[in-house]
Nucleic acid binder design. Sequence first.
DNA 1: GTCCATGCAAACCTTTTGCATAGTA
DNA 2: TACTATGCAAAAGGTTTGCATGGAC
Lengths: 150, 150
Amino acid sequence: MDGNPDELLQRYLAERGLKSTRQRSLIVNTFLGASGHLDVDELLRRVRESDPRVSAATVYRTMKLLADCGLAHAQRFGDGHTRYESALNRDHHDHLICTSCGAIVEFENDRIEALQDAVARRHGFKVTRHKLELYGLCRGCQAGKGRAHA
Amino acid sequence: MDGNPDELLQRYLAERGLKSTRQRSLIVNTFLGASGHLDVDELLRRVRESDPRVSAATVYRTMKLLADCGLAHAQRFGDGHTRYESALNRDHHDHLICTSCGAIVEFENDRIEALQDAVARRHGFKVTRHKLELYGLCRGCQAGKGRAHA
DNA sequence: GTCCATGCAAACCTTTTGCATAGTA
DNA sequence: TACTATGCAAAAGGTTTGCATGGAC
């Protein structure tokens, strides 16, 4: 999962008989250039700053493609919007989510992961993926009490 | 969160100036009588075994009411359906979900919870709720390899 | 009698899809 | 040229809501 994102994408597309297009490059570069957790609306907004004629359907299709290729991970934090984050040079991590301002903080904790594995083993499960999300108030929102939602 | 569910419901309704109806009683009793994690479709199906004229809208409204009252918890496991589980006489717990047969197993692990709190504290968050879901194959589906999806 | 709850259907919202057209290799 | 990708608009799928009617208190 290293190397130039564009080359990576080209390679993935070529391997699958897919084509490189202006829209796909734009969407992928916009996505990778942003710091993670964008939903499709926000990504589309940014893409359209460069090319207003790109359709939402293309963004949906492209992000699905990236997720299938393993270049992006889809997440659903429960607000009804699918968010994507880059999988480039990223280790697994979980999320702290501020329910007031919407801030998303990533963390990783090997001890939690190990305990999860132990629990799963105890129940006879072979775990392939997991989701750990901690919802609450970030430092700023605890202080500000009622800061506007981002 | 103890006592007769019907009485509990009556009390909650009365406190809020809401009314007790045939549909609400039927839905609540059907819900509480089932073992957890029902989605609205399944709950509606069971409710209609007793009264075929109950509408989906009423089930949605009633379950939202129960969730607001704290008698039920809403969950979204990512298949696009909201599931509800009873909050009566239940401690907090997390879920193991089989991606093959759909089985849902509950577990609780205090050490994981403690580590989550520690992580949150370290990041200055005050956590109000969390979601931990482990997805994978249950024992049966590991053996059966490809058992039909439930 | 007053006001809430229900049922129905339409509206919502995000995401997906069919289809004609445009673009890539 | 052959076949994929795009844009548009319609369709999907779960959930919510407006409104007239029915029901609880």
